[in-house]
Simulated assay, not measured.
Amino acid sequence: MWILFALLAAVAAAVVVTLSKAGIKDVDSSLAFAIQSVLILVISWTVVISQGNLPDVTRIERRVWIYLVAAGVLTCVSSLLSFRALKLGNASQVSPLTNFSLVFAVILAVLFLKEKVSWQLVAGAVLMAAGAILIAVSRD
């Protein structure tokens, strides 16, 4: 089931890139991100409340809070940088480079989460990196 959710997330992310690029044409990229962030906040807390998970907030350990807050800050930084890149470049070239994060995620998962490395994992990461670079440097 995780594969289905991952693929649906990829499709949603592709639509987000396309809509964001169209939306920031005549708007500052930081302002556009701030508008989207308000909606993300409202929708995500609505889901938490509707699922009955709000009381779980008090049971989150301090260490987990630190991880989640750090990840939240980095999510904002990443999104602000992505929006700025979209404002300056073509979505078809910016998106593959921002998705280079997949390669970095594999490296970090191996180093810090001690996930296992296989030749397929290495080959896939190399192919993803090569594809992202090839698309990003392509000419119009």
Rank of each mutant, 00 (worst) to 15 (best):
L127H: 04
L88V: 10
V69I: 12
A13Q: 14
V15Q: 03
I107R: 09
K116L: 10
D28V: 03
A91R: 03
G89S: 04
L41G: 14
E61L: 08
N53K: 14
G89H: 00
V57C: 09
G131F: 00
C76Y: 06
A130W: 00
L121I: 15
A9G: 14
V64D: 11
Y67M: 14
R139C: 03
D140S: 15
A85S: 09
Q93F: 02
S44K: 05
S20C: 09
L121F: 01
N90W: 08
I43T: 06
Q93K: 11
V110S: 10
V137H: 03
E61Y: 06
V16S: 13
G89W: 01
L108W: 09
I24N: 07
V117G: 06
A136N: 04
L134Q: 10
A14M: 07
L97R: 01
P96F: 08
A12C: 08
L39V: 10
G23K: 08
S118M: 04
S50K: 09
I24K: 01
K114T: 02
V126G: 02
E115R: 01
V16T: 07
M128T: 02
R63P: 01
G124R: 01
L68N: 07
V103L: 10
V94G: 05
V27A: 07
V42A: 13
L4E: 05
V16I: 08
L121Y: 04
L74I: 07
T46S: 15
V64C: 07
I3W: 00
K116V: 14
S82Q: 13
S44P: 00
I24Y: 02
V57Q: 10
W65Y: 06
T46C: 13
L113R: 03
L31S: 13
L19W: 11
V126N: 03
V106A: 06
W2C: 07
S78N: 13
D56Y: 10
I107Y: 05
F100N: 08
L31W: 12
A9Q: 05
I60F: 05
S95H: 02
S138R: 11
Q51M: 15
V15A: 12
K25I: 02
G131D: 04
G89N: 02
S138E: 10
S101H: 03
C76H: 13
A9S: 15
V47Y: 06
V103D: 01
R62V: 08
V27L: 07
L97D: 05
Q51C: 09
R139K: 14
F100A: 15
